[in-house]
Each structure stands twice: as structure tokens, then as C-alpha cells.
Nucleic acid binder design. Structure first.
Lengths: 143, 143
DNA sequence: TCATATATAGTGTATATACACATTATGAAC
DNA sequence: GTTCATAATGTGTATATACACTATATATGA
């Protein structure tokens, strides 16, 4: 059992992904703190800001996020008036929009995000950084 | 802004990691469901099972997890009596142990985990699978 | 011995995640 | 027009995550 368990720990893709995600998220979270948003919220704002009208379902798909999770994650942003959510016309569809305040916060967050990217890239080295980026893109494409 | 935001979305290492982690975690979660544990719990059980006495702080380090997060994550396992946590003697240190029930559940989960690994590996292809594994190991070593 | 420093764990609060199930708007068939 | 199917979103519940702060056991120094 002991050997098997150790083996599991060292080869589990899920575990390794989650571990890396925890560490990296903590870094980005610290970087974003001055503007008061989390990495997840930064991603939401940037994806919403980069699209012309996305419905909740589309947005969830873009983020590989369960729709119900997205719904919950939008709440703090709505409460703080960085985004607005409104009916879109097709069935029950709703679309998400960046408010002026949202644009402003996103603008403030951008350089902090760039810093975080730069620091991480430097720490990892360009090779691993690039490989990781392309691997993760592949994973998202394939799965 | 629109271009910048799109650029962010496509190059953010944190976003890509989180997206991949969500997808992969959902796969493993589904695989483990028959034995009633989550991927995180499976990892906890296997790491505890593979060590001779780990304190909470050590365990957190092994998992790149905040100690306070670990504390919370152990609760359901303790409640369901898959593990036990007891004082260890050094200052306030506590160690975690697998119970008989924990060993049993872990044994049942192992083949399900192997299936999940196999399916994911097949989907990704051996090349990407191997590269991803080594990249993630590097990330964990470096950061 | 007693006070203090240090190492360790716990709690309050907020966000993140997702499954199972519930709700509702609207297009289509009749 | 009414019914029904379908597409979309919402809610209940449970786990996962982490920061800021708190509590406590014990080793150490006076």
C-alpha cells in the first residue's frame, strides 16, 4: 500500500495540476491585491471586455467553467458594479457587460497582471514557460 | 481595450492552468464517484497512506496547499473516519493517519484512478501527457 | 521557576467549484 | 391559442481555497 500510494502521489495528473494551480494562483492573487480583485475575477473581466456580448452559457464555455459556477462567480462583480447582466432576447439568455468602473479596474489591473506574468516567466525560464503554455492550450483544445 | 483584453485571455498562465484544472478535476471526480470521494480527498488519502507520520504543516507542504486549507479539507475525511488526527508530541504538532476504513476506500479508489489516468493519457496522446507531467513537476520544483 | 519567544494549529470570512435539481421564457406543433 | 418541448438560467448543498487573525503548547533563557 505504501509504495502504491507514493506512486499515485507522484504520477497523478490531477494532483499535479491542482498543486501548480494553487501556487500560481497565489502569486497572481498577491499581484492583483492592490486593485482588489482576484485572478478569477480578472479573467472574467478581461474575457467580458474582449467580447461583444456573451451570454452566460457562452462565457462558461470560454472559461471551461460550469455554468452554475460562473453564475456564482459573477455575483461579487455585479455587487461591486464592475459588470452588469441583462436579458438578451433569446429565450432566457442573459448577457454580461463591463461597466465604466469595470473598464477602469481592468485597466488598473493590466500592468499588475503583466508583472505577474513576467515574474513567473522569469522564474520558470522561457523554455518551461512556453512549453507549459502550449501544453495547457492543447489540453483545453482536446478535452 | 478589446484587443488587450483578448490578448490577456489568451496568454494568462493562471487562467490556462485554472481552466485545465477544472476540466481534469471534473474527469477525475466523475471517475471517483463510485467510492464517494473527491480527487482532492483521494490525493490526501494517498499521500497520508504513503508516508510514515506526517504533521499537518508537512502535509500542506507536500501538497502545495495552504495549511489552513488542508485543515478544512481533512474535516470530511475525519468525519467519515477515513483518517484520524492526533497530537504528535512536538509543540502543538499533529499527525494524520489512515484508518482501516481509509485504507479500504483508498484500495477501492485506486483502479478508478488508474482508469482516469489512462483515459486522460489516451485523450491527450502520450507526447502531450508526458510533457505536461514533466512541466508541472518543474513548476512545482521551481516555484 | 517563571516569563517569553517560537512553532504549530484553529477560526472568521470571502471567494471558487460543481452536481443535482428547480425554474422559466419562448419557439413549435397541433 | 394551448400545450409541450427545449433552451437557458437559478438554487440547495457540499467541498476547496486562502488571507488575516487568534489560540495554544512547549522550548528556552533569565
Amino acid at each position: 500500500m505504501k509504495q502504491i500510494a507514493t506512486d499515485v502521489a507522484g504520477n497523478c495528473a490531477c494532483r499535479k495540476l491542482r498543486m501548480a494551480t494553487r501556487k500560481v494562483t497565489r502569486m497572481y492573487d498577491e499581484a492583483m491585491r492592490p486593485v482588489g480583485i482576484t485572478p478569477t475575477q480578472f479573467t472574467l473581466l478581461s474575457v467580458v471586455g474582449g467580447s461583444n456580448t456573451v451570454t452566460l452559457t457562452e462565457l462558461a464555455e470560454l472559461l471551461s467553467m460550469e455554468r452554475t459556477t460562473l453564475s456564482r462567480n459573477l455575483k461579487p462583480l455585479e455587487r461591486d458594479e464592475l459588470i452588469s447582466v441583462s436579458a438578451e432576447g433569446y429565450r432566457r439568455a442573459k448577457s454580461v457587460y463591463l461597466s465604466d468602473k469595470g473598464v477602469s479596474i481592468l485597466s488598473e489591473a493590466l500592468p499588475l497582471w503583466r508583472d505577474a506574468q513576467t515574474i513567473l516567466k522569469k522564474q520558470l525560464g522561457a523554455n518551461i514557460w512556453n512549453q507549459l503554455q502550449s501544453d495547457l492550450a492543447e489540453v483545453d483544445n482536446i478535452i
